[in-house]
């Protein structure tokens, strides 16, 4: 911890950053995001295996952008998000310094995004086993039971849009759900609209979702919404060999095609 704090202190001193986004301890054992604007606050900075939040989402926030030079303490999901977002040209207006702590508890300060890319490719995360187990289970059900499972899940959705808020890939200034001419998605928190909302969100994340699972983890009613995108990521890799958040350059899966893409359902 001391190592990390010293490193960040150094970055503050030599003027590389004037805002550090990291983690601090909180009421529960789950560390929470913290924002360090003064060197005197560095003491609260920690990094553990339980640091789950994908902090890259904050790089879209105007209040954060104002700081100009931003340091970000990234877990692997965050790094992946940073790679994907860079490939989508999202960081043209900020200067950022990326830090991570590796398995050996060494602090790494990346000098550019290429280094991040190399690190991500060397440490590319697998799908979580828990998610895969649940997906397998769902796929073993009959279609009617799957429909029942998901519609009951979505009936609990209250449309708080926390899934959208925590998603680093959901950076559109105006979301489809806010368009009302036409009203694509019903605004009331009722099942049909909820279902459409989650399908729409998954589709708009196709090939872009970096699989951090934040949407499912923070859902206040506990809907495993991330399963939709996990499944999609699996499919995209299987069908087209693409991985999101893997390379700085390259098209995303739905923005590109191969003339010999295979499918078995078009007559």
């Amino acid at each position: 911890m001391k190592l990390l704090q010293n490193k960040v202190a150094e970055l503050f001193e030599n003027g590389t950053i004037n805002l550090m986004i990291g983690f601090k301890e909180a009421l529960t054992k789950q560390p929470v995001p913290c924002f360090i604007e003064k060197a005197s606050e560095i003491e609260q900075l920690i990094y553990t295996k339980d640091c789950k939040n994908n902090l890259s989402v904050y790089l879209h926030k105007p209040e954060v952008k104002q700081a100009g030079k931003i340091g970000i303490l990234a877990n692997i999901a965050t790094l992946r998000a940073l790679v994907q977002l860079t490939s989508e040209n999202q960081f043209w207006d900020i200067e950022k310094t990326v830090l991570t702590v590796n398995d050996k508890e060494e602090v790494i300060v990346f000098s550019d995004m290429e280094e991040v890319e190399a690190y991500v490719q060397a440490n590319f995360p697998e799908f979580s086993e828990e998610d895969l187990k649940l997906l397998d289970y769902l796929e073993s059900l009959s279609r009617e039971d799957r429909w029942k499972y998901w519609t009951e899940q979505f009936s609990a959705c209250i449309k708080c849009y926390a899934c959208r808020a925590v998603c680093p890939m959901c950076y559109c200034p105006q979301c489809t759900v806010e368009c009302n001419q036409p009203q694509w998605i019903k605004t009331s928190a009722q099942t049909t609209g909820n279902l459409e909302w989650h399908i729409m969100r998954a589709m708009h994340l196709a090939g872009r979702c970096i699989n951090c699972g934040e949407c499912g983890r923070i859902c206040p009613v506990g809907i495993p919404v991330h399963l939709l995108t996990v499944k999609m990521n699996q499919d995209l890799f299987k069908e087209f060999g693409t991985k999101s958040g893997f390379a700085l350059k390259g098209d995303y899966a739905l923005n590109s095609f191969k003339p010999d893409d295979k499918e078995g359902f078009i007559k």
Partner: peptide, 17 residues
């Protein structure tokens, strides 16, 4: 206020709960 709300992502979870 600015520092205190830096983490706020603008979802409705607090209000709805």
């Amino acid at each position: 206020w600015k520092h205190e709300s830096m983490g706020c992502l603008g979802c409705g979870a607090c209000a709805f709960s």
